[in-house]
């Protein structure tokens, strides 16, 4: 294993909860992320996959310190070996850490796309931006358009360009490829790959698993607010037998080209999590032990898994 001080980002035992009104003025805390871990080294792309609502986007917000006011964050969040405090997050975001937001609603509706991507930087990076637009296949006239005049895929590419324009050491791309055609998505991922090969790091939150396997180094699988497995991307390419957690195997089998098999049941709601393993209610291999206590994280075959039986 590499040394701790080499990591770009190190997260463990992270939890995020939201304070919500219950009845009248009574408040309750709803824990949406628990015991989450993720380590990112320079030069790699880590894919974050997992169910919708498993806390992938919240993790991005937690790293940048842009969670809403009623959220509380606990746990270890270290950037380049130093703790990420609110003050440091404010310094780093937009310069050292860049975000490609998930929603195209993040574009300012009243601002032309070109000026928006340039931002307030001085001098304006217009030439660099033009070449990035070109590589992403955005026509020249795009910079003169307002967001409502863009198609879904064009808006995504405009968002991706904003992160590529920064000199960030860490890019968090929150589902950057939906709506893009396969060639455009491949080009965007190739540009992220080049950034990583330059010694930067990319966290790629995605549902396009088949693309992720090709371009990333490792895959972290989230479920119900926790990390259930981190595996080498090559393990995912090999198929379910190379994977360690039943949920990762189920993800693989649900791909349209691998069977399109859904799994019965749904991810538990944050307010009603099971006592033991979070996946136990849907797991075909569960035993009494799984229902009783949350399994610890174990290292198996170069990956990590939170399961008593993963092998």
């Amino acid at each position: 294993m590499k040394q701790k001080d080499e990591t770009i980002l190190e997260i463990h035992d992270l939890s995020v909860s939201f304070r919500m009104y219950d009845h009248g003025l009574e408040q309750t805390d709803l824990q949406v992320i628990s015991d989450l871990y993720l380590t990112v080294y320079p030069g790699e792309i880590v894919a974050v996959a997992g169910s919708s609502g498993s806390g992938k986007s919240l993790l991005a917000s937690a790293i940048l310190g842009i969670l809403p006011g009623n959220a509380t964050v606990h746990g270890h969040l270290h950037y380049k070996g130093q703790e990420l405090t609110q003050e440091r997050q404010e310094q780093l975001r937009g310069t050292d850490i860049a975000l490609v937001p998930q929603s195209v609603a993040f574009l300012d509706p009243l601002m032309k796309v070109g000026a928006q991507a340039d931002g307030h930087r001085k001098p304006l990076p217009t030439d660099k931006r033009k070449s990035i637009f070109k590589r992403l296949g955005l026509p020249d006239k795009t910079e003169q358009l307002y967001p409502f005049q863009l198609s879904g895929g064009m808006a995504r590419r405009a968002l991706v360009s904003t992160a590529l324009l920064t000199d960030a050491k860490l890019v968090i791309a929150d589902e950057p490829t939906p709506g893009m055609s396969l060639e455009q998505a491949l080009e965007a991922l190739r540009m992220f790959r080049e950034m990583a090969d330059d010694g930067k790091a990319v966290i790629l939150i995605t549902h396009d698993l088949d693309l992720a396997f090709e371009f990333t180094d490792r895959v972290a699988v989230f479920y119900a607010g926790t990390t259930v497995e981190t595996a080498l991307a090559s393990d995912f390419k090999k198929g379910p037998d190379a994977l360690r957690h039943p949920y990762s195997q189920a993800l693989w089998r649900a791909l349209p080209q691998n069977g399109f098999q859904p799994v019965c049941g749904f991810q538990p709601y944050a307010g009603a999590l099971p006592k033991g393993c979070l996946y136990a209610p849907r797991c075909p291999y569960k035993t009494a032990q799984c229902m009783d206590a949350v399994p610890p994280v174990r290292e198996i075959r170069g990956g990590e898994v939170r399961c008593y039986y993963g092998a």
Partner: peptide, 17 residues
Amino acid sequence: DEISTMLDVITQAQIWN
């Protein structure tokens, strides 16, 4: 219109089914 691109593959398979 691209209704399942923002969903995980298991949910995608569930919804489409």
